[in-house]
Structures are given as C-alpha cells and as structure tokens.
Write a protein that binds this DNA or RNA. Sequence first.
DNA 1: ATGAAAGCGCTAACAT
DNA 2: ATGTTAGCGCTTTCAT
Lengths: 341, 341
Amino acid sequence: MIVKSGSATLVDVARAAGVSLKTASRVLNDSPELRPETAARVREAMVRLGYQPNELARGLKAKRSAVIAMIVPNLADPFTASAFQAVQDVARKHKYAVILGSSGGDVEIEKSELQVMVRRQIDGVILVAADSKKSDVKSLMEKHVPLVVFDEPVLGEEVDSITVTNRKAAREATDHLLAHGYLRILIVGARPFLFTCTERAAGYRSAMRRAGADPIELLVEHESDLTLEALSAFVSGPNGVEAIFSLNWVCTMRVLRWLKALNKKIPQDVALISFDDFELADLIPMELTVVRQPSRELGHQAATALFERIEDASHHPPRKIVLSTELILRRSCGCKPQPQE
Amino acid sequence: MIVKSGSATLVDVARAAGVSLKTASRVLNDSPELRPETAARVREAMVRLGYQPNELARGLKAKRSAVIAMIVPNLADPFTASAFQAVQDVARKHKYAVILGSSGGDVEIEKSELQVMVRRQIDGVILVAADSKKSDVKSLMEKHVPLVVFDEPVLGEEVDSITVTNRKAAREATDHLLAHGYLRILIVGARPFLFTCTERAAGYRSAMRRAGADPIELLVEHESDLTLEALSAFVSGPNGVEAIFSLNWVCTMRVLRWLKALNKKIPQDVALISFDDFELADLIPMELTVVRQPSRELGHQAATALFERIEDASHHPPRKIVLSTELILRRSCGCKPQPQE
DNA sequence: ATGAAAGCGCTAACAT
DNA sequence: ATGTTAGCGCTTTCAT
C-alpha cells in the first residue's frame, strides 16, 4: 500500500472506503442520514489511515477558525493568569482553542495584535485594554468580530463588558482604613489613563472627602516609576502617611519591596490594603488585607458572553456585567493583633 | 459603490485596482518584480476596501498556520507564566501566534490537546509534559510536527529538549543545608513520576548519603495530598526535621501555609529552601533561599529551538539543551541573621 | 442514502 | 512585468 507523502485527506479516506468524498464528509460531521455499515466502513478507513481532519480547510469554508484570542497587558499578574484559566476552561468545552497575546500595555502593539487576529479569522476576542481611551478596536468592529472587554473597558464602544465595582470597592477599602483611625492615607497607583485606576482613585477620594481627610496620591505614569524615592517621600518623616491603599498587584509588589527597604513594619508603621488577592497574600506574616476580585468568575463570564455572541446570530444589545468584589480583612490593615514573636 | 456582505477578498482588490489576482497576490507578498505604480494602485485599493488577508486560506495552501502551541500542566505556576512570556516574545518576532493549552497534569487531556493541535495544523509545539513516561506525543511525531519538550522531558523520544541541571541543583541545595549543620532534612515533592521530581530527589539523596545523613522524604502523588497532617508528622515533636527542601513552587506554597499553621518560624524552627524563585520570595520577612531556574532563558531557548526546526527543512539531530540553575542565598536557609524586631 | 461539482481565499506553476 | 489556471482540504447545494 502506498502511503502518500503528507498525511491522509478526506479524499484518501473516501477512496480507501470506496465511497464518495461527500459520504466521508458526512461521517466526519456525523450526519444522521447514513447507512450504519457505510459509516462504519469509512470510520475504519479513517483509523487505518490515521486520518486527522484539517481544521484550516474546514475553517476556510465555514469562515470560522474555532479559535478565540485573549489579549492582556501583563501575563505575569496573577489576576490575569487566573482569569485566563477560566476562559480556557470555557473554551475547551466549546472545542475552541485560545491564543494568548500580550500587549505589554502598549496601545500600538495591542492594535497590531488585534489586527493580526482579524487576519487569522479569530472567532472572538476577550480584551483587557491597555488604555480605555486609546485602545483601538475598530479593526474588530469593522469585520464584526465578537468582542468582550474585560476588567478594563474600552470607552465609547458598544460591546459586552465584564468589570467589577471598582469605585465602590475602593471606597469601602478606604472607609475601612479610615475606621481604623488613619487619616493620612496614601493611594499608590499607576497608569492613570486606565479606567480601573481612575475609578479606584475616585472611590478613594470620595471616601476621603466624606471623612474630611485630604487625599494623598502617588499616581505614576507606569509601575516602573514607582521608585524607592517616590514612595519614601510620602512614607518617611514625621508626617509620613499612616496607611497605603495600593491599586493593583504590581503596585503592591513594589510597595512591599520599598517598605521593606525603608524598614517600615506593616501595619505598625504603615497599614496596607491591596487591590487584588494572590497566592501568598495570607501567608506572609503581615497577612495582607485585600480587595479580592472574583478573577475566575470574571473570566468565566467573559468567555460565556463571548460564546453567546459567537453562537447567537441575533445581535442582542451589549451586556454590561459588573461583578462585586470582596474586602478580605486580614492583618495588614491593622485589624487583628500581630502574631506574637 | 457596492460593498460586499463579507469582507473584501484579494479578488475584490484585484478587480478594484484593475489588475489580475496574481498581481494583487504579488503585492501582498511584496514580490520585487512589479512596477511601482501598479503596486501603489493595488495598495491603494487594499486600503480603500479595508482588505485584510485571510491567514486561513494562506495557511491551507502553504500547509502552515503560523501558530505554535505551548501545552503546560499548570498555568498558575509563576515559572510557567514567565517561560510563556519568553516564548511569546520569540513567536511575535517570527510573526507567529501562540495557543496556550493546559493539561491540568492529566495525561489523557494532554493527549487530546496534542491531537487537536495536529488538526489545527499547528506548526510546532512546546510541551511541558504531564508525565515523562506516559505523555504521548505519537500523534505529533506521526505528522512530523516539530516538538520541543520543556522542563519536563518525554522519555524515549528523540526530540529537542530544554531542561535544567535538576540533580546537581538539588545536590547543591542539600549540601548547603548540610553545611549549616542540619542533618534531619526533609524533601517535600509531588508527582514522583515526573522526571524533575525524580532527578531532584536523586540529587538530594546523593548529597545526604555522602554526608552520612538519612534521607527523609515526603513525596506525594499530587500536591493536593500535601496536607497539614502529612507535613506535621515530619515537623512536629522532638525529632521534627531541622530543614525542608521543597521541590517546586506549589509545594513551597503549601509548606509555607502549614508551617504557618503549625506556628513554626523560618529558619529558627525549620530552615527552608525552595526550588523555583518567584516575585515575593525575597520580600517576605523570611526571605526564601531558592534554586532559581532561568525561566525566561528557558522559554527563549525552547522557542528558538522550535523555530529552527520549523524553518530548517534539514532534520538536524535533536538538541539537548541543559541550562544551569542558581542557588540564591537569602535568609530562610539560616544564612544571614534575621531582621531584628 | 449517496454522489458530482462548485468554491471558500489564497499561492504557485506556467505561460505571455 | 503581468495574467491564466490549477489546486490546498473541506463543505455544500443540487442531483440521483
């Protein structure tokens, strides 16, 4: 028997089974209108030839790739990783693969990534925007590629969005610090052009104002600008802040690093609340109090919404899903006594 | 002007520019043999029609998808995330996208993921095997899909592999603990069927034997079996171990959790060295001493090796790249004095 | 129940 | 320098 150079195609299978191409195709798509014995013969030929259908060819015809993409600014963030896992689980159930792309927070890279996805006939995109105002999803909209914006919305576009109650969460966290009696509370954030950053800052300010306290803000262009000097200016000296509210995971990492360098104890010298929970948060001795975002739930909802768009031809109006966060009280805010030495 | 329902194809562009299909195709692939003015006219038409080439069609013809896949057991592990980033960076330079798949450590899921990748005409796979003996890459080999095994090799297959000096690293880490004077040193690992686990355990044993110390091992089937009770049996009581060597990140997380629950101070009560470095390792007060794997470098090398296979038609013999690790001495091993309270 | 033929959007011989 | 033609592997009318 002659084995063809490449791998077997459906034509080969049909020939081997002594049926027409279409019949073989029917078996592949398990169409009901087939004599069982014919189907069996074809299936046997498939196994014998080690046949694997070519998804590219299938997709070319059907104008679908059975692939979705998730584009994020930062893969290292545990929040993102966790959400991706949930997306991936949903995708698997739908027999879809997920391309994970990273924009590195750069709007231009993001734009080109999105464009590439269009060329790849991606069936849908979950986007964590790099900049809620500048992120450009026109290439997707033009080609009617289903889009769900996630965590960080794209302003001014009528698309499904999955976010959390950022403002409320920040207000609550700030209120909690205020309730501890702290008045000089610093927020530390980065990329102020982000919706999440803006909202969280707004929540903080509203809480501070209501309490008659002055907002103290360290909002830098990028996380890398969060230097020791920058933080030290707010933390050191007699008028150093009593508490810090860090607006995302990367900021928290940097704050922890610099507080350690400055030899500041948490919460004795400075209290701390962090947006985003993560694996070690409760394990380290200062036991971080955090605003927990339901990352898996968010990812699950985003993927579910996306597949609804992909599978529903009907253009239902955009869903705006907003999930709640949870303030997890541990020790870094000053809540419980520190473990004795 | 009539806008076709779907998006513009190359035929539309050709028609709009008044040239033949092939000419338009030449422009797309910027073939040199073209009159500049013709090319300009075609390009103008492309822009005007908002033309985006269909990668599926291109791939069908060229028998390539311009997509590679990375299949890993656990996305949450920072080591994996970091390696993926490097892979993704290399892929972008080659104009490839990366599908990230998760096997959850299950050989069957892994197998079906790999098979799906074949159907998708994936151009290459980077695999972190779920089980070095049972992982099944036959489906890839049969179709001659380039494969690089990463971190955890697939035994018995002649493929490129990128790993680290697991055994040596474990020996050095153990030696270091021994040098501190600890004799009752416990290793904590999971999934003993993994090559990485086996090698690290072997390194540990050889160091222990050479020092005349008895190996003490807690090697469980899965990380979830690493319960408080399991660890407590080794740590508590007058004969509790003096030091722990944890074989991967997940184990370390669990060890930290249970040591905290048992109210054991690191390193005063129990010293600790962890395989795998991570973001917070140096920030937490016990400052973890770790065996650092060059995760980005590993990812970079894996991707580079993969693209060499993809682009080189010549079947060069498999590369076996083994990178070195680095023992990062911090405080949890007992090296430096603890920060004073 | 099964088959013949057209075509998805593109590339690549092979002309001219 | 540019056009014609034939597929890549599959699905899908439309026949039979």
